[in-house]
């Protein structure tokens, strides 16, 4: 799994951080998403997919 972000679209709802805190974080200055791991291990995949599905601004893109 490879993840890319379109952080310009991020509205800092923070749901990805709640769902997959080992993969996503928020920038201290404005809460915008930060990728901690762009190729997370298999045990994180389900949470990452869930984060991408829930993200209100469709920021998270998953490449198989």
């Amino acid at each position: 799994m490879k993840i890319t972000l379109d952080a310009d679209k991020c509205c800092a709802a923070g749901q990805c951080v709640l769902i997959a805190p080992e993969v996503f974080d928020q920038r201290d200055e404005d809460g915008i998403v930060v990728l901690l791991d762009d190729a997370p291990p298999a045990e994180q995949h389900e949470a990452v997919r869930e984060a991408a599905a829930i993200c209100p601004a469709a920021v998270i893109e998953i490449h198989a």
Partner: peptide, 15 residues
């Protein structure tokens, strides 16, 4: 909207 919202987003971020 983006400009104004981002002035307060950090105040409500998860951490």
């Amino acid at each position: 909207h983006t400009r104004l919202r981002r002035m307060v987003t950090r105040e409500f971020m998860v951490k």
